[in-house]
């Protein structure tokens, strides 16, 4: 499904701020893989996701989705294959537009917009049912501007938008990090429900080791811009935090220093 081959990305090359964010990272996701991604600050988690989404070009390597090389495609052309939810709840929606207008835009992800009405009547019914499933009462506020919603509601809506038109790949960039623990748990449960229901190939960055162990069928750890741990299936189901720490020390040759990764 997703094939990342040996990608590298250096920010501010040749300056004092030079940052080698990705150093020959490779990754292969099978259809239906739900992989959680962990790693310390600066390990390259977000850079990897943004490279796949096409936010910036990579320096080396290739990105393929379903066998199609998308390495040279700009961000908006990759959107056809990829649904995304960002860490910042403000980034996933247009605040000044109504809930149903946002959903209408998402329902045409990857299509060239035309001169037909953006919002049609039969869509309204469809959106109503989908919002009802979220169980946040949003179905009663479909004409409310998204800017009036709470962070958690916005993330739930963004998740719905990202999966409204089934993506080949779902990218979740710490999408619950900005929420309070209770809301985060709710959004995560919703994420699992949607990903399982639609059998979506998913990459989910999280800073929380417990969440990384609890969700998905696969766990990937990045360190210095490379994948250093990749466990899946049976092995992942039985993994505990101490095992993970031991694996990290063995793989990286250094001790896990990030408290945030442990406790967060």
């Amino acid at each position: 499904m997703l094939l990342v081959e040996n990608i590298s990305k250096t920010f501010f090359p040749g300056t004092i701020n030079e940052k080698r964010a990705l150093q020959g990272l490779s990754l292969h996701l099978k259809p239906g893989d739900f992989a959680t991604v962990i790693g310390g600050n600066g390990a390259g988690k977000s850079t990897m996701l943004n490279s796949i989404a096409g936010v910036f070009p990579v320096d080396e390597g290739r990105v393929l989705i379903d066998g199609e090389d998308i390495t040279k495609k700009p961000e908006h052309k990759r959107a056809k294959y990829i649904g995304r939810v960002f860490q910042d709840p403000m980034l996933g929606t247009a605040a000044g537009m109504m809930i149903e207008e946002n959903l209408a835009l998402a329902s045409r992800r990857g299509e060239t917009p035309g001169l037909g009405w953006s919002l049609s009547r039969d869509q309204h019914e469809h959106f109503y049912e989908l919002l009802k499933e979220l169980d946040l009462g949003l179905e009663k506020r479909m004409t409310a501007k998204v800017g009036l919603l709470s962070g958690g509601q916005r993330q739930a809506l963004t998740l719905l938008m990202a999966t409204l038109k089934k993506p080949k790949l779902l990218l979740l960039d710490e999408h619950t990090a900005a929420l309070d623990p209770k809301t985060a748990a709710k959004v995560l449960a919703l994420t699992e429900k949607i990903v399982t229901r639609d059998n979506l190939t998913t990459l989910m960055i999280t800073h929380n080791m417990r969440d990384a162990l609890r969700y998905g069928n696969r766990l990937i750890m990045l360190h210095n811009g490379r994948v250093i741990i990749d466990v899946q299936g049976e092995e992942k189901q039985h993994l505990e935090i101490p095992d993970l720490l031991a694996m990290f020390e063995k793989a990286s040759g250094s001790e896990m220093a990030s408290d945030r990764l442990l406790l967060g």
Partner: peptide
């Protein structure tokens, strides 16, 4: 501004990142 193109232009004004993620060339 009620059409698909018009809605995409309005969304661009609010959030370029979001509408690019929906596949629109801002």
């Amino acid at each position: 501004f009620g059409t698909q193109i018009g809605a995409a232009i309005r969304a661009t004004g609010f959030n370029q990142q979001m509408i690019r993620a929906q596949g629109v060339d801002t």
